[in-house]
Amino acid sequence: MRETALSESRPLQWLLIAVAVAFLALFLVLPLAAVFVEALHRGVGPLLATYTDADTLSAIWLTLIVAAITVPLNLVFGIAAAWAIAKFEFRGKSLLISLIDLPFSVSPVVSGLTFVLLFGAKGVFGPLLDDWDIKIIFAVPGIVLATVFVTFPFIARELIPLMQEQGTAEEEAALTLGASGLRTFMTVTLPNVRWALLYGVLLCNARAMGEFGAVSVVSGHIRGLTNTMPLQVEILYNEYNFVGAFAVSALLAGLALVTLAAKSLLEWRHAEGLPTARRH
């Protein structure tokens, strides 16, 4: 503990702690608690009814599929981008880094809109797709595209700073010892960034499964076909099926809690394997 001369008085400390805890309780803990209480307040019966409902099941299934496509795509991109950016010096590098972060500053609704403008019935490729009888908007491909867009930066932005901090010395050492490029990457680079990679995957997955705005614009809300879990929440809520809406929400909230727990565990146990900004 610091000396009293360099710290606030005890009562003031406790007052500040109390205010901070109250603020976080009001804005973070209470909404989370509300989800579980509302889901359970009619008992387990209606909850189970929701979880065995065909539309809910298909929404869960679709959410899993979307995440299973999105995360690997952005993973490959993240690794490729981080390798090029962190291990080489080239022109336009800082521009490339800013462009990677671009999706974070675009409203999810706007991201959805851009895909409607591209592939919608009146979009740029609309007539072409119509001729070939391919549906992207109001179908699963559109949902995947919108999700890939909004989760685009997550993995790259964990890997880039860490790999920049690590430099190229270890890779160069491996090459001088006779390892091939691919082998160097697999045995030297990848093990060095595995925790950051996992961290990025966790965040990317959470957002992919939870994305609402962008997906809502391109989905068309067709029950059993193009509804992801967050969209199912909206439909049930708008039908005044609150228990159902909160039951699906409870699953998503559970996912959020698991993500938070895993993320915190990585921050505590493997801080040295994460970019400096993540260590706290």
Binding site: P31, M209, F212, P230, L231, S249, L260
Partner: peptide
């Protein structure tokens, strides 16, 4: 960051 926005919304 982790809680889906729709869930936060209805809560």
């Amino acid at each position: 960051f982790a809680l889906p926005t729709a869930v936060a919304g209805i809560a």
